[in-house]
Design a protein around this nucleic acid. Structure first.
Lengths: 240, 240
DNA sequence: CGAGGTCTTGAAGACGATCAACAAACGTGG
DNA sequence: CCACGTTTGTTGATCGTCTTCAAGACCTCG
């Protein structure tokens, strides 16, 4: 079952029973991944696209000398490489961040969906477009925000994305992302991520115990980050 | 006439006479812009998407305190805000970089094109996907490359994008982009862009006279940048 | 209980930012 | 065609954020 995807798409447009049925039947495979396990290889030619069903995944590029950059963090409901349908060759890898369940949808099914259900086709385009919008905001973060702003911004973003999926309660959510991951996502060093998070904790803005991240003062964290959720194109503000 | 767009799309797929005809008839407006003039406003609800016909444009976000980040540089043939079709509200601005001519295509025309010509629809998707691929590489640059690598990389990218459009000769091309622009594109300060470019010039890798950028030693510049054009999804390597 | 991953800490240094001032190039109008 | 104002490019000095390296503490899980 790929309920999270349906939940997400329905935040954009109402889906008919037929459409849901079609989506539910479309995955050719379901699989669980260990933290850090590769879901799709950089340079590969996938014939399926991946829906995250449970847990977190990330897309990243790795340079010849080992430096790596995370391009996107994906949560349940995300169709994370829809573009491989148009581009064929994958210019980045996808891997699990923490334990993660993935459904694979063959490209033929996507083609059929587009042919049969214009509404689904639009929903896929919207998924693609919101992914790109998030990427744009990350660019702003990497280019123009300080470490402090950038990390706060990312934590706010995750809250706003997880909430409509029912994965955040009281401004807290499961957080399997390591500080090394955060470094690769933000373009910072692990050490500096650590110190910056300590700063945020010291100010009583967040806590990070075990794998649970809690935002203690969302209002102030948003101010620190300069966070405006508009770019997420959420249907309505989460009631928080 | 929007020949550059046709040239670009044809590098991906052959277009029928009908399809070309349709494209040529679709713009509702042609307009010239002065350097730095706004083509589309951040926060606006455009009903048309823009094709760059001549010159350069950029998409950028501006933060409340004035910091700004360029998200993409667009050259002739680029359909630069196709995503506004799905997203309605524009989360960034578009403006001219140097003098620039723009054709505007109403969203209805895009809708019609999708309905009538599946091939065009795919070409639009491909355009969207390659734009996103370029954005991904920029993220790697901003997060993980040094100023030197990043600027070299950008200059290589522009060469590889301009060449198939017939806008680069002998590894040289028109370059209306200011150093302040480069700073906003890379996330660096203008001063540091200046010094880094001087370094590249000092090593005999490039020259920048007037508005003409010449790459004197592409091989070495690519090595400095760690440039691999794969992410551009070009049909074939430019013959340089 | 041990092992590997993750987090934390300190010290030193590099890369790039900032500020300020000036030079050069450009375009515009007189 | 020159004068002028504005934009763009250049330079120097100083400062700060973030990186790097290295080591040790903590934690989790088999």
């Amino acid at each position: 079952m790929i309920d999270p995807l349906i939940t997400k798409l329905e935040s954009y447009t109402r889906l008919s029973e037929e459409e849901k049925e079609f989506l539910n039947r479309s995955p050719s495979q379901f699989r669980d991944y260990q933290p850090n396990e590769t879901i799709a290889f950089q340079g590969g030619y996938p014939t399926e696209s991946c829906v995250i069903v449970k847990g977190f995944a990330c897309r990243f590029k790795i340079l010849p000398d080992g430096r790596q950059q995370i391009l996107a963090l994906h949560i349940p409901g995300d169709f994370c490489d829809l573009h491989s349908f148009s581009l064929k060759k994958l210019d980045h890898a996808i891997s699990a961040v923490g334990p993660c369940s993935v459904a694979r949808v063959p490209h033929e099914k996507l083609q059929q969906a587009s042919d049969l259900f214009p509404n689904l086709s639009r929903a896929f385009m919207w998924n693609l477009a919101t992914d790109a919008a998030i990427a744009r905001e990350w660019m702003v973060s990497m280019g123009r925000r300080s470490a402090r702003e950038q990390l706060s911004h990312l934590l706010c973003e995750l809250l706003y994305r997880l909430k409509p999926m029912g994965l955040a309660e009281n401004d807290a959510y499961e957080f399997p992302i390591t500080q090394a991951n955060l470094g690769d996502a933000t373009g910072l060093s692990t050490v500096h991520v650590n110190r910056t998070l300590q700063e945020l904790r010291g100010e009583g803005l967040i806590t990070l115990r075990g794998k649970l991240l809690a935002i203690l003062n969302l209002q102030r964290l948003k101010e620190v980050a300069g966070f405006d959720p508009g770019y997420l194109y959420l249907p309505a503000a989460p009631n928080g």
